[in-house]
Computed example of a mutant assay.
Amino acid sequence: MPVDPTGDPKQHDASEFAEGMSGSCLCGSITVTIKDSELFTKPRGHLCHCANCRKIAGSYVASNLLIETDKVHVEDKNGTLKTYEDKATLSGNSVFRKFCSVDGNPISSETESYPGKIVLKMGMYPRIPQPEAEGFGLHKHEWQGEHPKIDTYEIKWAGPERKKMN
Rank of each mutant, 00 (worst) to 15 (best):
K10C: 05
S94K: 05
K82V: 01
F99E: 00
G79W: 02
Y114P: 03
M122E: 09
S29A: 14
F17I: 02
K77A: 08
Y114S: 12
E110G: 08
K71P: 04
P106Q: 01
C50R: 12
N105L: 02
R44E: 09
P106C: 03
L39H: 05
L39G: 13
G116W: 07
T69V: 09
I118D: 13
S29Y: 02
E68V: 06
N105R: 05
T33W: 06
G104W: 01
S101R: 01
M124T: 09
C27K: 08
S113E: 15
G58R: 15
V61T: 11
M21I: 11
S37D: 14
G20H: 11
E112F: 05
T31W: 00
G58F: 07
F40G: 06
H12G: 07
D36G: 06
G104A: 04
S63F: 09
K35G: 11
T80V: 01
N78C: 12
R54H: 14
N93A: 10
Y60D: 11
G79E: 00
F17H: 06
N93G: 05
G79H: 00
S29G: 15
T41Y: 13
S63T: 08
N105F: 03
T33K: 11
S94Q: 10
G104L: 10
N93S: 15
L39W: 09
T33S: 15
F17T: 11
E112W: 00
P9K: 02
G123W: 12
V74Y: 03
I34M: 09
S29N: 03
D8P: 02
S91W: 04
C48F: 03
I56A: 13
R97H: 04
G20E: 11
S22N: 08
S94A: 15
P115N: 13
V72M: 03
P9F: 14
M122R: 05
N64L: 15
N93M: 13
H73P: 04
V102Y: 02
C53P: 09
M122N: 13
L90G: 03
S59C: 00
S94Y: 04
C27N: 10
R97D: 02
A14I: 10
K98H: 08
F99T: 03
L66C: 12
T41G: 13
S94I: 08
T111D: 11
V32N: 05
T111L: 06
G45W: 04
D103V: 00
N105A: 01
K77W: 03
K35V: 07
I107W: 00
E68I: 09
N105T: 15
T33I: 07
C48R: 02
G20F: 00
E16I: 06
P43D: 12
K121L: 12
S113I: 10
D70H: 12
C27H: 00
L65K: 12
S109E: 14
P115Y: 09
N64G: 08
L65H: 13
L26M: 13
N105S: 14
K82I: 01
T6W: 08
K87C: 04
D13M: 00
A14V: 15
I30M: 00
S15A: 14
S24H: 15
C27R: 01
V74H: 06
